[in-house]
Design a protein around this nucleic acid. Sequence first.
DNA 1: CGCTAGCTTGATCTCACTCAATAGCAGTGG
DNA 2: CCACTGCTATTGAGTGAGATCAAGCTAGCG
Lengths: 249, 249
Amino acid sequence: MYVERVLLNREGGELSDKERRVLESAIDRISTFDEGDILVRQGAPVSTSTLLLEGFITRHIDDPSGRRHLVAMHVPGDFVDLHGYALKRLDHDLGALTPVKVAVVPHAALEQIQEEMVHLTRRLWFLTLLDAAIHRQRIYRQTSLNATARVCHFLCETNARLLAIGESDGNSFRLPMTQGDLGEVCGLTNVHVNRVVRELREMQLCTFRASIVELHDLPALATLGQFDAHYLYLNGPTARLAMGQAEKS
Amino acid sequence: MYVERVLLNREGGELSDKERRVLESAIDRISTFDEGDILVRQGAPVSTSTLLLEGFITRHIDDPSGRRHLVAMHVPGDFVDLHGYALKRLDHDLGALTPVKVAVVPHAALEQIQEEMVHLTRRLWFLTLLDAAIHRQRIYRQTSLNATARVCHFLCETNARLLAIGESDGNSFRLPMTQGDLGEVCGLTNVHVNRVVRELREMQLCTFRASIVELHDLPALATLGQFDAHYLYLNGPTARLAMGQAEKS
DNA sequence: CGCTAGCTTGATCTCACTCAATAGCAGTGG
DNA sequence: CCACTGCTATTGAGTGAGATCAAGCTAGCG
């Protein structure tokens, strides 16, 4: 079952067994890519969509000088270019941040789903809107938070998304990015990211070393980064964990 | 016919007459709001979506100190909170930048459309994805362009979107924003916006006075702001106009 | 063992912010 | 008709966060 983590722990409820089976059968094949591979080029016509199963995928826009700017990062369970179904071509590149395993879903199968499964279609639509909500938060924080707060926000957000799919235990998670990558996400230079990371370590808030993030004080990080998980549309218990609050027993 | 400007001049073709009629009949009522009104509050449950007919609407996120940050601006023909149909609540406020006239479409009517009109549904989905594409461009430019370039990009983008609905003639358009508003969109202070506006005027690129934007050299503005209209998914002729290229005869 | 990628730290510079003051203009009320 | 108020635009001076430039360090790897 490749689609287990799709919409896991989100508001609006899980998919039904039948919906999962339909989605599963929409998969045409499983593919793998190496770190650094480009999965889809900006502007190229697309006739399939990619469900991320393992690893991390980035969306990036190149500037005229060739420098990459990450506009989004995806975690397993994300339907990374589902928007290609309606747009027909992407406005950005898709790249593998790590070795990745993906499921390929032809648009023809999505059209079939759209004709027959009203609720599932709305939930897939929801997934693309979730991306947009994450974009909006990024716009907000890039324009109004300082470097430290931006990094805090990104770490909180990533922790929350990984929590939803069971890839974070709430205190630590694997994040295979370099400080340079983190800079491209947060709009900072690698030099400055390094200083921010050191600052957060010295403040005993978190550590980021050897691809492992350890959160020592999630509530404080969330406050510093003005992180509020509402825009991730997580279900109640997961949202509380994401904010560093103990789950109600 | 209130829905004439929906999807006008976009890639993927216009809506059919039947689709327009169906969309038109989905409208429950027409409402007006005054400048400064909040149409929808962040977090409030929504059961209708808003099609903007006249005026400008903003989406904004308030920071803890109460300052507003615009994350998006909408022009007539935009389905400003269509994403509320799948999300059920918004992650931001909707506010009237000017006096506005809107058409209100109940989600029940959208569900009806979703059950019966596969192509129209996909085109509505497309509309929400267009928003996301605009968000991504904004993320990119907020993190990598300087103040002057950001303002240039915003003016080019707004001109392009207004061109699509016939509210710009390609050289000038009405933009009822203060310099402070422009600052909130571009992530700048009003003081600095003022300096950028003066600079652009002195460079003979454009003027922005009394709510009128006049573009004196659109190709130069586009270059300065690294604007490329591809992410707006305009049809060919409109895209060329948006880049300041004479339409092929 | 040398090479390369990533991490770390220091010094300097600059773009845009902040603070501050003034001007113009529309509306309002006495 | 004019004083008063509030909003927007404008310009100047000083400041600071983060970029840039530069150099050294560390660790994995062929």
